[in-house]
Amino acid sequence: MTEEIIIAGFGGQGVLSMGKILAYSGVMQNKEVSWMPSYGPEMRGGTANVTVIISDERISSPILNAYDTAIILNQQSLDKFESKVKPGGMLIFDPNGITRLPARKDITIYSIAAADEAGKLGILKVFNMIVLGGFLKLKPLVAPEFIHKGLEKSLPARHHKLIPDNEKAIEVGKDLIQPFTPAD
């Protein structure tokens, strides 16, 4: 099993930390992982993305041009990465702020209104975990117990009190995600 994932959105949406929690959870479950971020000025308010690979085997290239799954949180990222999903792959997007919807018919597309839901529930800080929950429902790469360990390892000790909120957000995401059919 090898899953090659791109997570992309605005800087500040928690793109990199979502990837880190996923990667650390993989480590806890004894998987091979890599986490390759965009870095530099991109991270300061512009677009941010991270390539996460989780595998049972030694990982070859941490830098990719085609992905099994794209998790997309803004329009720029959708424009950039929709075409980079492998045929038969999966695209998950949050419709918040999206003006041009995804259109490919050769991949499976899901939408998750995580930004809206996080606002309603007053849990904006863990918005990214709602998205991660949606992804994990479709591709349960790591078991919940290892996600818990991944959260413990990824978050500094002073933020460990937020772990229950994070886990709740993951559950919210699992219920929120739904299939999306592109217009003809």
């Binding site: 992982v33 986490w35 390759m36 870095y39 990982i59 941490p62 830098i63």
Partner: peptide
């Protein structure tokens, strides 16, 4: 290089 410097692995 910057890629290996910035990437995370086990």
């Amino acid at each position: 290089d910057g890629a290996i410097g910035q990437m995370m692995e086990k």
